[in-house]
């Protein structure tokens, strides 16, 4: 967050598909309060949704005893979102999806979430928890981008 004062909003989601929409709505509200244009709010909503879906499906392996943390830190010129799960983190970045390979059955039609996250926000990093859990993805969207 570049060392500047920030305002934090936290949401805790159940590990259940569909609840990513709660995080989307929260991120959208915060981004609108910060003055992000509508197209960037939509980018952020999709990136946050995909991060939460990954946390629910892969990080927490759909275990409903666990939860997904979403921490939004609003600075003066950027919004940082951390999506935290109880997984061990990703070992390596998947290859960029290839529509031709998908159409020819050479690649799973799924597997586009991380690509979309990286394409839609200004910064995205995946951090493995040092204790073997509490891994997170950190997204940053900057206020001047596309303004």
């Amino acid at each position: 967050m570049s060392g500047k004062k920030s305002t934090t909003v936290e949401v805790r989601l159940p590990t259940r598909l569909g609840f990513e929409k709660v995080a989307m709505a929260t991120a959208s509200s915060v981004a609108k309060l910060m003055g992000f244009p509508d197209d960037r709010v939509e980018d952020l909503k999709t990136a946050v949704a995909e991060a939460c879906i990954n946390a629910i499906e892969h990080g927490n392996s759909l275990n409903e005893k666990l939860s997904v943390g979403v921490v939004l830190s609003a600075g003066t010129d950027e919004l940082e979102v951390k999506v935290i799960d109880d997984g061990t983190g990703i070992k390596h970045q998947p290859a960029k999806p290839d529509i031709d390979r998908k159409m020819h059955g050479e690649e799973d039609p799924r597997g586009m979430g991380m690509f979309l996250i990286q394409a839609l926000v200004d910064e995205a990093e995946w951090v493995a928890g040092t204790d073997g859990k509490s891994s997170y993805v950190r997204l940053v969207i900057k206020l001047d981008k596309g303004a």
């Binding site: 990513e20 999709t46 949704a49 995909e50 879906i53 529509i99 998908k102 159409m103 799973d108 039609p109 799924r110 597997g111 586009m112 979430g113 979309l116």
Partner: peptide
């Protein structure tokens, strides 16, 4: 979402 896009691709 991306899972929905995958269904459209199918």
């Amino acid at each position: 979402n991306s899972s929905g896009i995958a269904v459209i691709i199918q």
